[in-house]
Structure formats: C-alpha cells, structure tokens
Amino acid sequence: MAEIPDRISPLDGLFEPGDFGAVTNSPGVEYSQRLCGALVQVQAWPGTTGKVEAVLKQVLGLPVPKARLAHMKDETILMSTGPGRWLVDDEMEGLEEKLRKALPSDLGALTGLTHARVVISVSGEKAEWVLSSGIAMDFHVNAFPGGGVQLGHHHEIGVTIHRLGANHFELYAFTSLAHGLWHWLTHAGAEVGYRVT
C-alpha cells in the first residue's frame, strides 16, 4: 500500500483562535477541530450484517451500537450510520489495515475516509440552538439523545453528527465542503458569540 500523506486540515488558515460575535461574559458556543487518526466506513452486504458485527466487536473491543447510536472506548468511536453500515473513528493510525485483514471482501466493503472528513466540535450552552438554525432535524434530546448519531445536511453539505452530550456535538464534514460549513457556523454562532480554540 502506498504511503499515506500527512493529514492537512481543509480549515487551516480559517480556524483562527479567539472570541467572535456577541461574546459578553462567556461565548454561547465553542468550536474546535480535529483530524481523525483513522476514519473507516464499513458496509455489510445483504445477509452479512451479523458476521460484520462480530468482526467489529472482535477488532474494536466494542459492542456494536444499534441504529443511530455510537459506542466509545478510549479513543475509538463506532457509529451506526445506516442499515448494515458503520463509521469507525480511531485516533490511532492503522485501523483501516487492521480491519481489512479481519474483514474479507465477501463479508463487506471498507472505505477509508481518513482524508475525506474533518471533525468540527460544537459545544456550549447554545450548541443545540446554533445547529438547529441551519440543519433541519429534531435536536431535542428525546429525539437525538447523547450518544446518538444522525446524518443530515446543511444546504447540500452532508454532515454526520455525533452527539456526545446535551451540549456537545461533533460534526464529520466533507473536507471539500468544510469551508462552506465553517462559514455558516461562524455566522450562526455570531449571534450568541463563539470561541474558536
């Protein structure tokens, strides 16, 4: 396999630390970004879902989450993103190769997305309010509880949202469209004040 190039954030140069917008005592929302060590999509074939779940459990040491949920352990996040489909986020590089060895292609398909997504963390008292202003889905904790995963979009920019807690979300955004999403987040956060860290 060819050597993987260094990871470069599409938001480098735009992500300027500081307080912006209507910050009085404390910002309503805080933004930060991170790049995954490894991000892999796993798709089972029809009829192999159970076998793929067993492989994921064995390799990751995590129980496989039910629909629209995520499980976390140490620096690994396993998210259920569709029927027979999961997204695995790991801080350590090499996850893709480990999964490829354990998961033969007759059980499912692996897609490496490490360089295709950037993760934007949105947290703070107004995080839900900010996201609700531009993403048409029900963010109420009853519909989207902590530990939940939802896929949606903001004006055609697809985004996978992992809710870590009541006021903390991680947005997995396409690197090629991350500029647009970030632009919106800065405008949406300005009204309540936002801090970039």
Binding site: A67, R68, A136, M137, D138, A143, L151, G152, H153
Partner: peptide, 9 residues
C-alpha cells in the same frame, strides 16, 4: 432508519 426528515434531504 433516520426518522422524520425534511424532503430536501
């Protein structure tokens, strides 16, 4: 799978 969503999705 996802629940109720806007038709634009």
């Amino acid at each position: 799978y996802c629940g109720e969503r806007d038709h634009r999705e």
